[in-house]
Design a binder for these strands. Structure first.
Length: 359
DNA sequence: CATCCACCGGAAATGTTGGGAC
DNA sequence: GTCCCAACATTTCCGGTGGATG
């Protein structure tokens, strides 16, 4: 039952960078012209924004790939490197291609990086910048913005902030002056085409039914979810990917998308997410307190030490930034200042499956 | 109107790790 | 080894907030 339809799984994996994109030509053109040698400003900074699964990260990676070899590049996912120091360390490692030990002082590191960036052109991508800003403020961005010789650029990527202006201090923004590029959600037709082109490379010919693909494309505008979904269906399918296979793996696919998003986070993030999933079966709208007690129960059952509620409050914000939950902050409601939290299932079960799949 | 509730979120306190100097 | 320091994770502390309650 394995590998019946799957010839090469790589084109369906999240890391796969296709030679050419189906869409996003406009955005790419803007980016390319920004970094071309002739344009006066190699010094321009960029801010890419738009919902998850719209190709921001891939577009940025593509740009890095197309830069001349002599340009030094670095790609920093701020989900993992969420403090100034950690990001600097990673940046140093990528620039110098060596391991940088802990205990190297920030200012020393800053000086080394600064020296290096004077000698050649450098482009740094900060993906998921929201996490760094939330956790550590804009110290790193300020430092990077000050590096602005003609030879240094920063590309920031955010799924939530259209504009960095409100998120960073004025001095930082005024030295960065990033050009903003917005990414719109993919249409169903675009999702269809992208998945089709990946499927052609990954699957046996004629093993994918059109209706199956249509179903995915009409359900989610998030290409990341779409790919995960198609991948799961391909693994499950015996001779062909049909619409019913696709429906069958729907929730599994969403779960593995969630796991993919949470892969760089702590076990406690997973526990919290699990808690929210369980609690929302009874009650769609949850409050922090309920979630925290639920979380402590799970910890007790699994014999783990729970973290404090202050900490969990931050973790909830992480889940919110990942768009796994929606949190409504409001001052008012029945208990003063609070958060109303609800689970986001981005590919919800529709009415039709209700009767059948209920156990 | 005063007080309580249940939470937010900033800041200080505490604990841990690992490098460098001696 | 011992001592000190930087960076970090987490906890502890505390001053809000604003409807509900009396």
């Amino acid at each position: 039952m394995t590998d019946n339809v799957l010839v090469d799984p790589a084109p369906l994996s999240p890391q796969y960078l296709p030679a050419e994109f189906v869409d996003r030509e406009d955005e790419q053109a803007v980016l390319t012209s920004n970094f071309s040698e002739v344009s006066n400003g190699f010094n321009s900074n960029l801010h890419l924004h738009g919902p998850r699964g719209t190709g921001k990260t891939h577009t940025a990676l593509k740009i890095l790939q197309n830069l001349p070899d002599k340009v030094t590049t670095a790609f920093i996912p701020s989900t993992i490197y969420d403090t100034e120091y950690k990001a600097l360390q990673e940046l140093g490692e990528q620039i110098f291609e060596e391991t940088i030990q802990e205990g190297y002082h920030t200012s020393k590191l800053q000086r080394r990086i600064e020296e290096r960036t004077q000698t050649g052109r450098t482009v740094v991508v900060l993906d998921e910048i929201d996490f760094l800003l939330m956790n550590d403020g804009d110290d790193l961005l300020y430092y990077l913005s000050r590096l602005k010789s003609q030879k240094f650029s920063v590309i920031t990527i955010s799924a939530h902030y259209q504009d960095l202006q409100k998120r960073v201090e004025e001095r930082t923004y005024s030295s960065l002056q990033p050009q903003r590029i917005g990414f719109e959600p993919y249409s169903a037709e675009q999702i269809f085409q992208i998945l089709l082109s990946r499927a052609r490379k990954a699957l046996k010919p004629r093993s994918l039914q059109r209706s199956a693909l249509t179903y995915i494309a009409s359900t989610t505008p998030n290409i990341q979810i779409g790919l995960t979904w198609l991948r799961q269906a391909a693994q499950k399918a015996e001779s062909a990917i049909t619409e019913s296979v696709v429906r069958e793996v729907k929730q599994d696919a969403y779960q593995s998308y969630v796991n993919y998003l949470l892969k760089d986070f702590t076990p406690h993030h997973h526990l919290i997410y699990e808690t929210i999933t369980q609690l929302s079966e009874d009650n769609e709208l949850l409050q922090t307190g309920e979630i925290y007690t639920g979380y402590k129960d799970i910890c007790k059952k699994t014999k783990q030490d729970p973290l404090s509620n202050r900490r969990i409050s931050d973790y909830l914000k992480h889940l919110e930034l990942l768009d796994l939950i929606t949190a409504d902050y409001h001052y008012g409601g029945s208990k003063g200042k609070t958060r109303d939290i609800r689970l986001n299932n981005q590919i919800p079960d529709k009415r039709d499956s209700e009767g059948k799949n209920q156990k």
